[in-house]
């Protein structure tokens, strides 16, 4: 077995108040040394078979890990970067054997597609875009949306992937007159794309026509809200936001996520649910991920909290393991696992 492999770790200690529903199944020990920044679970074709894999990103190295039978991980490829560090992994749904990464310092300067085939014939990076990139998201149907430029010349572009990872086509969307912070697909409306802006507006595009359909202001109680999930139901648009700037002294507790309903016809919105920490728990949202009805967040306290968005309850609180605060968390795109990373490079895989 290669040296760069993982071990099966003991279950981390959970206090009696927060056993939650998280069960540790595997630990991936990343020996790469540099600062870990992100993790993602993807499908990769290895020896002709689609295999669940984990992608880890450190500042200058992105690694591909293949699952072995015993919940251990074998590193099968690394992509190295020398000039610009990696900021985030950008998984693209409906695409296997390809992952995108955003590189930059404080802001994204480049987006690259990373490819590798187990025959070793196709290991490469493809530069997809460069410049002053503000936001990027992988979309269903092999697409990637990004916004770039300054306010005066902001460009919102959807790229479709060819099989070799290159660009098959590019389409421009009408830019709003304010900087876009995040994108989200709208479940239930395949051709709709949602964006949140720096002015606390939500914008909706028609991905077929490129039209900017509407701009809707949301409550100013929380600035710079980030959209993690959006779905259309019964004529309303439901949006799950996180509030990195929320104060911990809110009377209702500490809202980490919020579900709001918006009527796109009138632009009127109403709060549906606040997802707060249990009483006695402190912490603000640092970063997080939402998949289906589950939301996970790394908190300023160093813990990870998981909410069931339908029940509205915090379902699990995961304390730091070995006194190492959590630094990032992602739901697996290949199964119902939670991937949690620490600053020392360890990635823990939990079954929920």
């Amino acid at each position: 077995r290669p040296l760069e492999q993982t071990e099966i770790a003991d279950l981390p200690a959970c206090d009696s108040l927060s056993p939650g529903n998280l069960q540790l199944v595997s630990k991936l020990k990343n020996p790469s040394g540099s600062c870990p920044v992100d993790v993602s679970a993807v499908w990769w074709e290895i020896a002709g078979l689609k295999t669940p894999c984990i992608i880890t990103a450190c500042e200058y190295v992105v690694s591909l890990w293949k699952a072995l039978d015993t919940w251990q991980w074998e590193k099968i490829n690394s992509w190295h970067f020398t000039e610009v560090p990696v900021l985030q992994i950008v998984p693209v749904p409906d695409v296997s054997s390809l992952v995108c990464v955003a590189l930059g310092n404080l802001e994204i300067r480049e987006i690259r597609a990373l490819l590798y085939s187990s025959d070793g014939a196709h290991e490469k990076q493809v530069l997809l875009g460069s410049g002053n990139i503000k936001a990027v998201l992988g979309l269903t149907k092999r697409r990637l949306v990004s916004s770039s430029g300054t306010l005066c010349d902001q460009q919102v572009e959807v790229m479709t992937f060819a099989e070799d990872g290159g660009s098959k086509g590019r389409q421009l969307l009408m830019p709003p007159e304010e900087t876009i912070l995040t994108f989200a697909e709208v479940q239930g409306l395949q051709e709709a794309l949602l964006g949140t802006t720096i002015m606390n507006n939500i914008v909706i595009w028609n991905l077929n026509s490129g039209q900017l359909l509407t701009k809707m202001h949301i409550d100013d109680s929380y600035q710079a809200s980030v959209c993690h999930k959006a779905y259309s139901d019964m004529g309303l648009l439901f949006v799950v936001l996180s509030h990195p700037c929320a104060k911990e002294s809110e009377p209702l507790g500490s809202p980490v996520f919020q579900l709001i309903a918006i009527n796109p016809m009138t632009s009127l919105s109403a709060g549906v649910m606040l997802y707060c920490l249990p009483q006695g728990q402190a912490g603000r949202f640092l970063e997080g991920d939402v998949k289906e009805n589950l939301a996970a967040a790394v908190l300023t306290s160093g813990k990870i909290a998981v909410w069931d968005l339908l029940l509205g309850h915090c379902m699990a609180l995961l304390p730091p393991v070995s006194d190492q605060s959590w630094s990032f968390v992602k739901w697996s795109g290949t199964d119902s696992h939670l991937l949690a990373g620490q600053k020392d490079g360890n990635i823990f895989v939990y079954r929920y």
Partner: peptide
Amino acid sequence: CNEADLGPISLNWFKELSSEAQP
């Protein structure tokens, strides 16, 4: 939330907004 607070709702809001928006 109270639907009355959000004004008249259309199940086809995406289609309607697409037909009204600038091409």
